[in-house]
Nucleic acid binder design. Structure first.
Lengths: 263, 263
DNA sequence: CGGAATGTTGATATGCCTCAACTAAAGTGG
DNA sequence: CCACTTTAGTTGAGGCATATCAACATTCCG
């Protein structure tokens, strides 16, 4: 592991379970928390005391199902996962998407039963952190718990924005807003290259996210492609005209509560 | 103050600032937290050490505006408040409604800038609790912070359900689901009398909640009245046929994560 | 009692869903 | 590596649900 990565975790080497993989996994989380929170040396020590188990997910595979009572929390290390409600008729409503550094089921820390499911959007690798250890760490370091709490609050802000998006905006605006959010968050986490990032989502899933039929998804996507040079192909999202896309989608990144805007 | 109310706060008298009003305000919060969390004697002591200021809101009055940086958190003592996004065109998108015992802006504890506003739905009285004191209490009693954290996580679950409601359900089902949630939560908090509770919301606001035009709100409401004996008049919601209404709205209360179902 | 806010109803237009046929791409087994 | 199967994406036609607009009724409040 090189000096730069070492600096990222504040110079603390992983003396507890000292190995490169563990440090790398934690760095993903630490970098994420630092997008909005300040972490002290003691908080980092506490984080480095956590154990974890890696798990690889195939595209579409479920990580947690509605009704589960998980004893571990997931941290996305690479790839993308999505949260969704399973409806009585078997259809899905996607609620949010999560990329490296996100904890897509942090809510399960304090709510026993899952009211929604989490699945992989494209292949993904995740780290599983035991609730017991996390909560012990929270007892010892309240500021660390506040950072993760803040993370869950930003999640909630994203949900609120989704309510507005799917209730009060036209179809093209909805889709534009979603794309803006995904690219913006990817850039904030250093996961984008220029104005493109990995979004291995299908048209069907897009429809189940934005509350539109697949036919409309297709036509709306073509509209965005023509007018704003948006491409969504081969699992990659490319935004040609960011300014105009953000305008169409009424995208105001304030709700993401990041300390420094990436765009 | 009578013996019963005294038991509610675990036999602890308000020795810190000992007065009946303070105890009553805190009991509202304590009762709420106990719907989903266990609080120890020390947690209650800590809560009773909090100071607060009361504030009366007229119907429609804003408590917090989008962009504010509040230093206090609100606790609803009576009446109802709503959270909403203000859109560029001046319209509103209501996000959630909160009744006695709820903390409608608890998120502001760890997120500086408000990404949405909060206003009174009908006249309401609220207690304002300083962030500084709350966070000091969280440092001393992590389990207390977990209880409020859990509260914010249940809020998030309600937001998720709203995404699904406004994206994947028919208009009658949406409205039915909202009514079910409001009555269910009111009953859980002991704020309902039988199958009715106070919901002083107008048709216009209903439309801005459910993503439908006011004309459709009106017609849908009449449909529910005819088929399920739902009344919404004079600020009161009355549900005649709960079973059928819950079925129409696909209402499954699991997402509210209450320890004991009130229906 | 007058005025404003809120609720009610009908007519019209349109955006989106549904259905269905088809094409392209990706994955599979011989 | 190709033929086959399956999945994902594309396009058009038709009908319906809901937004929009406009007129009117009712309630609320000063």
């Amino acid at each position: 592991m090189d000096a730069r990565a070492d600096r990222t975790s504040c110079g603390i080497r992983s003396h507890s379970k000292g190995n490169a993989v563990l440090t790398k996994v934690l760095d993903v989380l630490i970098r994420k928390l630092r997008e909005h929170s300040r972490l002290g040396r003691d908080d980092l020590m506490e984080l480095h005391g956590l154990s974890h188990k890696m798990r690889q997910l195939r595209s579409g595979e479920d990580l947690i199902r509605q009704g589960d009572l998980p004893g571990v929390s997931a941290l996305v290390v690479s790839g993308m996962v999505g949260r969704y409600h399973l409806l009585p008729n078997g259809k899905r409503q996607y609620l949010s998407f999560h990329m490296a550094g996100d904890m897509p089921d942090s809510q399960a820390l304090f709510i026993e039963r899952m009211d929604h499911a989490v699945c992989a959007i494209g292949p993904a690798s995740i780290a599983l952190l035991p609730h017991r250890e996390l909560i012990r760490a929270f007892h010892r370091r309240p500021p660390l718990s506040f950072a993760i709490w803040r993370e869950t609050l930003i999640d909630a802000a994203i949900f609120r924005e989704a309510i507005t998006n799917n209730s009060a905006r036209t179809m093209p605006a909805r889709m534009a807003h979603l794309f803006c959010e995904l690219l913006y968050r990817a850039r904030a986490s250093g996961l984008a290259t220029g104005n493109s990032c990995q979004v291995p989502i299908g048209l069907n899933q897009l429809g189940e996210t934005l509350g539109m039929s697949i036919a409309t998804v297709n036509r709306t996507l073509q509209e965005l492609r023509a007018a704003y040079a948006v491409e969504l192909r081969g699992g990659e999202l490319i935004v040609g005209n960011w300014r105009k896309l953000a305008e169409l989608g009424q995208f105001d990144p304030g709700y993401l509560h990041l300390k420094k805007p990436p765009m």
